[in-house]
Amino acid sequence: MPLPFAPLLPIALRLGAVATTTWALARIMQDRVHPGRTDQRAEDALDDLDEGLTLHRPADRAEDRQTNATARLRRVIRLRGQVWELDAGLLARVRLRQRPE
């Protein structure tokens, strides 16, 4: 006895369209996303951060109205017999300068 495939055709077409769209978007994103890099100087700066949150304006950058922020969180998490160490660091710089038009 032959199986009726006609009722399954719309579902198969929708799934195929979704799969094709997902594949195409993944390919586009792969081509446009920068692979990134690891800068050892930045890694060392993050390792040297003290725990907590800081916000300051350097005196030598007053004309730029630059504000620097740092944050570091270090915790040990115990979950279901496993021990995880969380070390999150953040360096940020915000600089606001007026430019002539």
Rank of each mutant, 00 (worst) to 15 (best):
R27A: 11
V33R: 05
D44T: 11
R27P: 00
L55I: 12
R32H: 05
A59G: 07
R32E: 05
I28N: 00
L46R: 03
D44L: 14
E51N: 07
L46F: 06
I28Y: 02
E51G: 07
P35R: 03
P58M: 07
P35N: 02
P58F: 06
I28E: 01
A42K: 10
R37P: 00
D50H: 11
D47L: 14
A59R: 11
M29A: 10
G36K: 00
D47E: 13
R57W: 04
H34T: 11
P58V: 06
E43Q: 14
G52W: 06
E51W: 04
E43T: 14
P58G: 06
A59H: 09
R57T: 14
D44H: 12
D44K: 15
A45E: 15
D48A: 15
D44Q: 14
A42P: 02
H56C: 08
M29Q: 09
T38R: 11
D48S: 15
D44C: 07
R61S: 13
T54F: 03
A45V: 05
D31H: 08
D39N: 13
R32M: 04
R57M: 15
Q30K: 03
L46K: 06
G36L: 01
D47M: 11
R32F: 03
L49A: 01
M29R: 10
T54S: 13
L49Y: 02
T54G: 03
T38V: 15
Q30E: 05
L53T: 08
P35I: 02
D48T: 11
R57Y: 07
R61G: 02
D31R: 11
L46C: 07
D31I: 06
R37I: 09
T38L: 11
R61Y: 07
D39Y: 05
L53D: 10
G52F: 06
D48V: 04
R61H: 12
R41W: 05
T38D: 04
R27S: 02
A45M: 14
R27L: 05
D31E: 10
E43D: 13
D47V: 09
I28M: 03
A45R: 12
D31M: 08
L53H: 10
E51Y: 03
L53K: 08
G36N: 00
M29C: 06
D44F: 08
Q40A: 09
D44M: 10
G52E: 10
D47P: 00
L49N: 01
P35S: 03
R57I: 08
V33A: 05
D60T: 10
T38G: 08
D44S: 14
T54Y: 04
A45C: 07
L46A: 13
D31W: 04
Q40L: 14
G36H: 00
T38W: 02
E43R: 11
L53A: 12
D31T: 11
R32C: 01
D39G: 05
R37E: 15
D48M: 11
H34I: 08
T38K: 06
L55H: 08
A45S: 12
G36I: 01
Q30P: 01
H34A: 12
H56E: 12
H56F: 13
H56I: 06
G36A: 01
H34G: 04
E51P: 00
V33W: 01
